[in-house]
Amino acid sequence: MLDIFNTFTLAELEVGHHFYWRLGGLQLHGQVFMTSWIVIGLLLIASLIATRNVQRVPQGMQNFMEYALEFVRDIAKNQLGEKEYRPWVPFIGTLFLFIFVSNWSGALVPWRLIEIPEGELAAPTGDINTTVALALLTSLAYFYAGFSRRGLGYFAKYIEPTPILLPIAILEDFTKPLSLSFRLFGNILADELVVAVLVLLVPLFIPLPVMMLGLFTSAIQALVFATLAAAYIHEALEGHGE
């Protein structure tokens, strides 16, 4: 009996296995790059189709991508305000689009059917390296925002309104990227694991509600990441006291 089940494996769990690439002395997670390139390719192709022939009355792809652009613009505008948001739209928008398309590709594209020598293809955001990279970029972005706006006066925010909060203010700079990256990573990985486990147990129909929930949380996580990034940048631009 067990042999039959093992011969017709419908799904299996592989966590922590990676398809390693070596670049000089460096180790890379190949499967993450492969899926991220597909995601990036999707975004680029959609953008190129949308802007190939820009018209005043938008049609088809241009219309769709304008909707996407206005959506991410609204995220940035709601957090940063009408006056400040424009230069930050590309960063916040790309955060949202990349995370959103990555998450949904993980939920919608049956990556696991594609055989690679080791590990398995999955959403790029399900790898801690990707989420930490995005979170660190967000930290860099808000430090850049703070310093470019207020110069060294940006440090004043650590002792405002009172120096007693200095340790907490410093701690915040570590918790922000940490919470950003772990929230995204945890949600996506957990969603993939739950779906994988359910598929392992009951291959048909039963995992569908969980997969729908996965689509929902994936979208929410992309929105949360982009919104929080925008909120952190806004905080750095405005400061606590003002």
């Binding site: 460096l26 790059f33 990036i40 975004l43 990349f98 790029p124 790898d127 390296n129 930490v132 995005l134």
Partner: peptide
Amino acid sequence: MFDFDATLPLMALQFVLL
């Protein structure tokens, strides 16, 4: 699961390029 390696900086670079 938490193995950090050169994926991180390259992903960051890739994201900036994107």
